[in-house]
C-alpha cells in the first residue's frame, strides 16, 4: 500500500492547512473544532481553581457539551434518521437504568439489614509500595481481634479446621 510521502505526522495545524478551497461548510468544522479546544481548556482550568465541586461540574458539564457537539456536527446526527438517534439514546438510557438499579448495592456500603464490612476496611490504601511509604498502613488483611477467649471445648474439628474468627463480624 503505497502511502504518499506527505504522510503528516504533525497534528492539529497540519490538517488545518488542508482546506485550501474553503466553502461555508468547511469553516463550520474547523470552527467547531476550535470551540471544542476552548472547552477543553476551560475544563482544564477547573483543577487549577481547586474548588472540587466546580472542577467536577465544569469537567463533566463540558464533557457532555463536547459529546453533544461531536455527535451533532461530526457524526451528522442532526441530519440522520430519527430512529438512529432514538436507538443511541435508548442504549444510554439502559446504562443509566443499570447504574441506578445497581447503585444501592455497589455504591452504598450499607442498607436495610446489611452492611458492607470489607468496603469500610478497604479504605486503608492497599500495598502501594513506593515513595509515600509513610502513608500506607498494614497491608492486606488487617487481623480482626478474634475473641481469643473462645471457650476451651472448641477443639479443632476432625475435618478442615474452621478458625474461630471470621471475616464476617
Amino acid at each position: 500500500m503505497s502511502t504518499p510521502s506527505s504522510h503528516s505526522h504533525e497534528h492539529g495545524h497540519e490538517s488545518g492547512g488542508h482546506e485550501a478551497h474553503d466553502g461555508a461548510h468547511h469553516t463550520n468544522y474547523v470552527k467547531i473544532w476550535a470551540m471544542l479546544l476552548v472547552l477543553l481548556g476551560v475544563s482544564l482550568a477547573g483543577p487549577e481553581l481547586g474548588i472540587r465541586t466546580v472542577t467536577l461540574l465544569t469537567a463533566f458539564g463540558i464533557a457532555v457539551v463536547k459529546a453533544y457537539m461531536v455527535a451533532k456536527y461530526f457524526m451528522h446526527l442532526n441530519i440522520e434518521r430519527r430512529f438512529v438517534v432514538q436507538l443511541l439514546t435508548v442504549c444510554l438510557g439502559l446504562m443509566m437504568l443499570f447504574f441506578l438499579a445497581t447503585a444501592p448495592d455497589v455504591m452504598k456500603h450499607w442498607g436495610m439489614n446489611w452492611r458492607n464490612e470489607s468496603a469500610k476496611n478497604a479504605n486503608i490504601p492497599e500495598a502501594t509500595h513506593h515513595a509515600e511509604g509513610g502513608e500506607h498502613a498494614a497491608a492486606g488483611h488487617e487481623v480482626v481481634p478474634a475473641h481469643e477467649a473462645a471457650p476451651a471445648h472448641q477443639a479443632a474439628p476432625a475435618h478442615e479446621a474452621a478458625p474461630a474468627h471470621g471475616a464476617g463480624e
Partner: peptide, 17 residues
C-alpha cells in the same frame, strides 16, 4: 474481590442485566 475494594454483587448485576 471484597477484600480489595471489589464487590461480588456487581458481577451479579452485570450478569443478570
Amino acid at each position: 474481590d471484597p477484600d480489595r475494594g471489589g464487590d461480588p454483587v456487581l458481577w451479579q448485576h452485570l450478569f443478570w442485566f
